[in-house]
């Protein structure tokens, strides 16, 4: 599935925050997990927990997983993401996938620097107030400013504001 799970996750997250959900789930894939953890680091998600098909209890949300993954239960695992709200407004307003299965968009570190300063590069529009970009690099999925600190570029996944 590759990048397709990321585009699906983007749409799902946007739908979920607009529906004012507190906890929602996405398929348990490595790509999804890395993106979710990067969003968690950026303060966009309140929790990332790997759990079963039913929502984990509130006290388990601080854990990374409710039970160890085994070959017996791996097929039923899902990632449960806690969504954030501030002043009755969702913290995530818009999630826009950039790379699609039919068109992967990459950017070098220099190009990412230009984008982060608000200038467009190719098909990627410049970032504005409150926008972040998530990039899949050989150091994992990073927010654009983390990628710039490490001077790495990579596959541009999505734009969140």
């Amino acid at each position: 599935m590759g990048i397709l799970t990321i585009t699906n996750t983007c749409s799902h997250l946007q739908n979920a925050t607009r529906a004012r959900l507190g906890l929602t789930s996405v398929p348990n894939t490595k790509y999804n997990l890395r993106l979710a953890l990067a969003m968690h680091r950026a303060g966009l998600l309140s929790s990332v927990t790997r759990g079963g098909p039913s929502p984990p209890p509130t006290e388990a949300l601080s854990l990374l997983e409710t039970e160890p993954v085994t070959s017996a239960n791996v097929a039923t695992r899902r990632l449960w993401l806690g969504l954030k709200y501030w002043n009755n407004e969702p913290v995530i307003r818009k999630v826009q996938p950039i790379s699609r299965p039919s068109r992967l968009v990459t950017a070098t570190a220099q190009e990412l620097g230009r984008v982060a300063r608000g200038f467009p590069v190719g098909s990627i529009k410049g970032l504005t107030l409150g926008e972040t970009l998530f990039v899949s690099t050989d150091r994992g999925v990073l927010e654009v400013r983390e990628a710039l600190e490490r001077k790495v570029g990579g596959l541009v996944l999505c734009r969140v504001s």
């Binding site: 959900l21 098909p53 509130t58 899902r78 009755n88």
Partner: peptide
């Protein structure tokens, strides 16, 4: 949905 979601109001956020 196959996987039930939790509303924010139910979690005590609102």
């Amino acid at each position: 949905p196959r996987f039930a979601n939790v509303r924010a109001a139910d979690m005590g956020i609102m």
